[in-house]
C-alpha cells in the first residue's frame, strides 16, 4: 500500500458564463476522491478562479483527483506537489 502524504493542489479555472458553476463542478470531482481535504481556499476575481487545496492521501489518489479536474472544460491548469517540496516541481499540468 502506498504511503499517505500531504499535497498541495492548485487549480486555475475560468468560466465566463457562470463563474460559480466552475467551482461547484470542481468540488463534485474533489468530493469523490479518496483524499482528505485539510484546507481549501477559493479566490474569485473577474472570470479567473484560483483554488488552493491541502490534501492528505496516497499520491495515486491525489493524481486521480488532479486528472479528473484537468478534464473539466473550465479548468485552465492543475498542478500538485508534495507539501514539503518546492513549488517548482510541477507534476500535472495542462498549461
Amino acid at each position: 500500500m502506498d504511503m499517505e502524504d500531504d499535497f498541495l493542489i492548485e487549480v486555475i479555472m475560468s468560466n465566463e458564463v457562470n463563474q460559480f458553476d466552475a467551482v461547484v463542478r470542481a468540488m463534485n470531482v474533489i468530493r469523490r476522491g479518496k483524499v482528505i481535504i485539510r484546507h481549501m481556499s477559493i479566490d474569485m476575481s473577474d472570470s479567473v478562479i484560483r483554488v488552493s487545496i491541502r490534501a492528505r492521501g496516497e499520491e495515486d489518489e491525489v493524481r486521480w483527483v488532479c486528472n479528473k479536474l484537468d478534464k473539466l472544460y473550465d479548468v485552465v491548469n492543475v498542478k500538485y506537489m508534495p507539501e514539503e517540496v518546492h513549488m517548482s516541481k510541477m507534476v500535472v499540468s495542462n498549461g
Binding site: 458564463v17 457562470n18 458553476d21 461547484v24 463542478r25 463534485n28 469523490r32 473539466l72 472544460y73
Partner: peptide
C-alpha cells in the same frame, strides 16, 4: 444544472 453536474461532461446556465 446542480443536479446534472456529476453525470455530464459540462453544463451551461
Amino acid at each position: 444544472v446542480g443536479s446534472s453536474m456529476p453525470v455530464t461532461k459540462h453544463t451551461f446556465m
